[in-house]
Design a protein around this nucleic acid. Structure first.
Lengths: 228, 228
DNA sequence: AAATTTGAACTGACTGGTCAGTGCAAAAAC
DNA sequence: GTTTTTGCACTGACCAGTCAGTTCAAATTT
């Protein structure tokens, strides 16, 4: 095994991008706009073709920017990709946490919180389908340079689900027999795959429709005869 | 009930089992052995690195074969990959169908059938983790040459789940309100993601353990005492 | 049964092309 | 006047696919 983690020495590249638009602290917004364009170009291209099959020239062209600009803004193709990952998952995690917290504020149960998070997940995937594709495609790869980035990024999202499950167990709402990490994974997988299939094969269906079907599954309302 | 159906009864599925003898025009055993070696080399490399990042030279080297041999046996890199996909999903679909049919023969309910299929899925992923990784990574890509192969291949596996759900609805065991295709997707996703996370992050856990956790979720036994 | 032929299977150096990343002078934006 | 972007030529590595030549076991001939 080589495990050649060569140049881990470089200074951490500034991870701004997320809070972009609001309150410019003397910094240039122009640069942020360029980076944003590059993110958007890269995310769709990589989702369609994969990282390796996507060229920097393509990204630059779709972003309407010169190739040199890509390298002025990002140290390398992989760095661009890693920052894109962090950027996207940051949005997702924030959205999930927001959904869970709102439910808590409104006095909802933990199942309600999970349900709200399922919906938030669907909304996110509906809004950023390319990012979701890309995430799924790269998540379980071993041996990749950005392995550690992915781990961090995954944990950020899954942890929110785990937290709600754990609170549910502690509060007696969920059986203390449940396996929190595994159940969280399974729930994430349920939403992820159902949503991707929805986007890919039945894009005309409404979000509410899909949400209703997943809610039913989540709440164990699958068994039992129909009204006929 | 369910759960106790260990893999003892199922026939061990070996990759070799698929082609073995029949349908060979030249009837050469040597050639089949070479192709098998190439499949095995390709599946792990592509799972690790992705299709585009994996070179034909690497595949040949790992298979212990010259590069020319790859092209003697397959028309191109993509063709090798497509045949690999068909090969693997054939095994999975057969395994799922077998599990469902055995449950039916034993007079089990449809929930039992689903549970048996969850287990069969886990067994498959446990045995061929690389194939599973690769499948997930390529499934939802648009724009790829083997798009149609993937569709066929996906349908082969998902259809088995859909069939069981549909039969369950018709027999009154499941609510006729459920959305069959979407629920099937969600169930597949649940198993897929939970299993991949298991393999990636907690490989020391037993299959029974993981199966038990998923069974609980499947049967809606998540909510605790008090039925909050 | 030894010598010879056959051809499927395999080999690996080679080719034509692609692509990440560089370098830099000039323009544009701020 | 500093920061950012542009445009474009260039390099060096890498890679899919090719092809003329080799291997060897079985078939055929002697």
């Amino acid at each position: 095994m080589s495990a050649a983690v060569t140049s881990a020495g470089t200074a951490p590249v500034t991870i701004r991008a997320m809070e972009s638009s609001s309150t410019a602290p003397g910094g240039s917004t122009r640069r942020e706009a360029t980076r944003q364009k590059l993110y958007e170009a890269a995310v769709t291209l990589i989702a369609e073709q994969g990282f390796s099959a996507t060229t920097v020239d393509e990204i630059a062209e779709r972003a309407g920017v010169a190739k040199g600009t890509v390298y002025y803004n990002f140290a390398s193709k992989s760095v661009l990709f890693e920052e894109l990952l962090r950027h996207g998952v940051g949005l997702l995690a924030a959205s999930l946490r927001e959904a869970a917290e709102k439910t808590a504020r409104d006095g909802g149960s933990k199942v309600d919180a999970l349900d709200a998070m399922v919906r938030a997940g669907l909304v996110f995937i509906d809004r950023y389908p390319a990012f979701t594709q890309l995430y799924v495609a790269e998540m379980w790869r071993t041996n990749r340079a950005w392995q550690s980035t992915l781990m961090v990024v995954r944990q950020q999202a899954v942890a929110v689900v785990e937290d709600v499950l754990r609170e549910g167990v502690e509060g007696g709402e969920f059986s203390d027999e449940i396996d929190v990490p595994l159940t969280a994974s399974a729930l994430v997988g349920m939403v992820l795959v159902a949503a991707l299939d929805w986007q890919s094969f039945q894009p005309e269906r409404s979000l509410d429709d899909v949400h209703a079907a997943l809610s039913r599954l989540l709440q164990g309302r699958v068994s039992g005869p129909g009204r006929g």
